[in-house]
Design a protein around this nucleic acid. Structure first.
Lengths: 366, 366
DNA sequence: GCGTATTACGCAACAGCGTTGCTATTCTAG
DNA sequence: CTAGAATAGCAACGCTGTTGCGTAATACGC
């Protein structure tokens, strides 16, 4: 049975709404927020008072705009909160420190041995978090996010069977890390973390989006209706295992003609353009299925050839989507580059605490 | 800028939550709801008082359960509210009258002439609605829902280019119908309406689902995270235009090897089983992409061969989805049969007013 | 230079939400 | 018949956003 909403939810929701606005404007004022949110100016004053008390925003003087008392303006305090994000890949652990505005302040890249164990990861994670914590004032570190290859169970915080990692079956990584680090930890699929990074930085017009990641496999992070979408079993976005050629080559997953195997074969023979065109067909398939208007390309196997992939996907979106005048979709790479997953893991922590809640159900497990 | 939440939203949310519970239990009591929702028993009493005043629920005596004062129990009053749903297909207009519980009480099937005009549809709609309104007590008809072939714009209520209907370009059908009928009207894609019917009848465990419709084209209605998902331009679910064979036959949409053209060619040569297997590949593709745990099959071209399609999809889900022990997905047809779209259109009206809101944003446009 | 209109801010009172404290009611068990 | 237990509901409460209204600070007209 779903959870009911109470006054705490109401307050948190509206506070988060104002933080979301503050995050993407240099300065903001009472009247603008009141007009945009439908709150009364007086209610906005109360929200701002709470945010001032929490240190999340601070006054930015006044703005004279014609006749009348000047408007008080405020701005976000980016370094009022920090989060650390971890991107656990098959051979590397990438850690980043980000602030409330979603800027990456510091990065640590640690190589991981082949078939590393959970214990080894926890050790490296603890070392890295200790090193990065030095960069932020006491009490301002909100938590640590982990972006990990799947399959995993987001609700339980358990890694089910990390792809091609022997020691990773049913590992309750989230709780293990929280215990080891002594601060709140979130864990999610790498691609879902990645798309959260874009969403946190780009704001509320970024409502329906997908992040395509090509990096030892092809996956997609889904951001639907203004929130991360993970599916019924945290398995959404297994984009690479869509069949695009019924009689195609056998894939590791057991099916024939998966996008991933067709793509990888083209890459294996050195034909990046052909690989990009195959990926583009998959992207258009995804647009047909879920109609997002933002596509972000990412991943260590894609970014070195970003131009080729961008060209292929953009022209497919332009030429293969019917009524493209109306069904526009922007195709970009992430400004965060190879940090996008780790940064997104960090921003999931910020989003959990300071981001716009989409339902009381979400609020319940904070 | 998103809308803020206020006390009205809080009240409506919790009221809707209790209605949702009432809808799928014979009787309910205060303590059970309190435990399930996290509300205090006293708060539940206030909610029930409001629902009693609105006539949505009524007392159902008491239940003795051991020692202590007997529990007061209540039940939903199905005929306290009605809605009418319309399924506009290429050659037929199907109208149904449903009650608050989602039961179909009456059906009217009207043939439509080839290339019917908006005016003609409005006339037939008005006649049908007048006929069905007789079946419900005054003031209890909440509104009319229209499920229509796309593409259309749900937010604006405008039919963009109904497939293979000449007179349907940029027709503001929702507002035209509302003016003509004098009651609130909603309009949505047929498949989205269809999946809403299943959701309204099956309750909150039905959080991530897809309704596959094979009926002069192949489409999918998406229900993600407990609400209808329409995408950025109301174009989600164009499932039939996913490429499943890179070098396949040319489709009407301009691409090669779309699911729809491959499927239709198999049907054209009378091979229902092959067609069903192709559809099944598409369904597994969709499961990989969005990881839903309910698949509902529907549509006039599918239901006559429901067993073949159920078999094919079920075995594909069983054999082609990795870790199927964990990634379970139930595959069924709808109990509503050919009424599912029209009934769903009606239930969208009920859902808008009495269904669980997922965010204040949704509440804003009620 | 000065009064006035204009714009913005914020205190105080308010309605309505869920919560808490407590009393009344109604049953079973002994 | 009494004690104990479970439920219902009244009343007061804290907190939310809202409303009414007084105050502060500016530009503009005279």
């Amino acid at each position: 049975m779903d959870k009911a909403a109470d006054l705490d939810y109401l307050r948190d929701y509206n506070d988060a709404l104002v933080v979301a606005i503050a995050r993407r404007t240099d300065v903001f004022d009472r009247a603008t927020i009141a007009a945009g949110t439908g709150l009364t100016p007086q209610a906005v004053s109360k929200v701002i008072a709470r945010l001032l008390a929490a240190g999340l925003v601070e006054p930015d003087g006044v703005r004279r705009q014609g006749v009348g008392k000047p408007t008080s303006v405020y701005h976000l305090v980016p370094d009022s909160r920090y989060a650390i994000g971890a991107h656990v890949a098959r051979r590397t652990l990438r850690l980043v420190l980000t602030d409330l505005a979603g800027e990456v302040l510091q990065t640590i890249l640690t190589p991981l041995p082949e078939d590393f164990t959970p214990q080894r990861l926890l050790d490296d994670l603890a070392d890295g978090v200790a090193a990065l914590s030095g960069g932020c004032r006491a009490g301002r570190l909100v938590g640590v996010g982990i972006g990990m290859v799947g399959p995993l169970d987001h609700a339980e915080g358990v890694v089910r069977d990390a792809h091609r990692l022997r020691h990773w079956h049913d590992v309750p990584l989230r709780d293990l890390a929280a215990e080891r680090l002594g601060i709140p930890v979130l864990m999610d699929k790498d691609v879902t973390a990645g798309v959260t990074a874009e969403a946190w930085r780009r704001g509320t017009e970024f409502r329906d989006a997908v992040l395509i990641m090509v990096e030892s496999g092809i996956g997609a992070g889904l951001w639907l209706g203004g929130g991360a979408y993970r599916g019924a079993h945290t398995n959404a976005g297994e984009f690479g295992h869509m069949v695009v050629q019924l009689d195609g080559p056998r894939c590791v997953c057991g099916r024939r003609g998966c996008l991933e195997i067709v793509h990888d074969q083209a890459r294996a023979r050195g034909d990046v353009d052909a690989a990009a065109r195959v990926l583009a067909v998959g992207v258009v398939n995804l647009l047909q299925a879920i109609d997002v208007d933002h596509v972000v390309l990412a991943g260590a196997d894609l970014l070195p050839h970003a131009d080729a992939y961008l060209d292929a996907v953009r022209s497919a979106v332009r030429d293969e989507v019917p009524r493209v005048d109306w069904l526009t979709a922007e195709v970009t790479t992430s400004a965060l580059g190879t940090d996008v997953i780790a940064a997104g893991a960090a921003m999931q922590v910020l989003n959990e605490k300071y981001g716009p809640l989409t339902s009381p159900r979400q609020a319940a497990h904070v």
